[in-house]
Each structure stands twice: as structure tokens, then as C-alpha cells.
Amino acid sequence: MNTFFGFFGLVGIALIFITILTKKETSGKEWKFLAFFSFLVVPVLFTGGVINEKLDAMQKTEFCESCHVMKPYLESLKVDDDEPLSSVHYRNNYVKQENACYNCHASYAMFGGLKAKANGLKHVWAYLTKTKIDSIKLYEPYSNDNCLHCHEPAERFLKNEDHNKKEGLLAEIKSGKKSCLANGCHDLGHYFEEKEDK
């Protein structure tokens, strides 16, 4: 728990009690000033702080892992194998380990974070209403943009032989016409214990 917000919340609660208890029929300017702070300023700041804090927490891998259906995916990040992209990125810290799921699965586009949150709501709904979840699939094919966000400026990507074996291939990859994953070029994201692709 964030002690600062905890303390701030307690101050807010105390202010509301003080404001209500000191209310009189002819309350003066001081009371109005107090009410303005305890009913508007402090609650709004507290809520803003909590939301900000929790949005950060929602980007952490532990948060994704809190739904047990995601546990195999988290475990697959630690598989000692240089083939699966997720494991390679996670184990070598190519993406920040504590935010690994979010870094690769939230789009870097303008409303990417918002879309990820909306999809997260769908996940929670499915988690609460479905008695059995058969398989977990992406809503749409994995976007090249998520890979290119980091790899595009890299010389290793730009000068890679395979990326330049055909004229215009690099442009097709950059525009998303040719998927990094769906054309058999790069292996699928997650491997599980029995090395099954998912």
C-alpha cells in the first residue's frame, strides 16, 4: 500500500467529519472554504492519485498473474529456450521484466493503453461469467508495430539479410503488410512446458 495515499485518504476522511460536525445554519466563509477542500479538492486529488497508482500497478506482470488462467503464460516467460520470443525478451530483459506482458501486448498507438484497459474489462467479464475458458486467443493478429516500436531503429533489424532478401520486404514489414509472426519468419510468442505453440 502506498503510505502517502493512505495518509492522504485518512486526512480526507477526517476533513469530511470535521466539515459535517462544524456545519451550522449560518456557516461562515471559513466553513465554506473548509467544505470546498474536504468535499471537492481532497477527494478529487485522492482519487486521481489512486487511479494513477493502480494504472501503474495494472501494468505489472503480477497483476496479469492474479488471474490463474494466465499463470502458464507467465511461467512460459521463464522457459530456458532461445526460440520463443516471449522468453527471449523476458529473460534477457529486452523488455522491462516487471511490465513484460504490458510492454508486448499493449499497443504503442495513441489509445493503445486505453484499448488494453477495455480489453482487460472483457477479460474480467469472461473470467467472472464463464465456468470454463477453453483457450486464450488474441483479439486480433499480433501487430508489427509492437515489435517495430523497439526494433525499427536498430541496425540489426534494418541490415538483417532476411529482412532485405526481397526488394520492398522491409517496407512491407514496416507497413504491417507482412507480419513478423504470421508468415513463419519468427516463432510464436509463448512456448509451454511441452513446447506446444499457443
Binding site: 489512486v50 500497478a57 482487460g120
Partner: peptide, 12 residues
């Protein structure tokens, strides 16, 4: 309610 969110990381 918002206080209780500070002590949990359960998504639901």
C-alpha cells in the same frame, strides 16, 4: 472503497 484498492492487486 478506494482505500481498499490500495491494499489489493486482485484484478476482479
Amino acid at each position: 472503497l478506494l482505500f481498499s484498492t490500495l491494499v489489493t492487486s486482485n484484478a476482479v
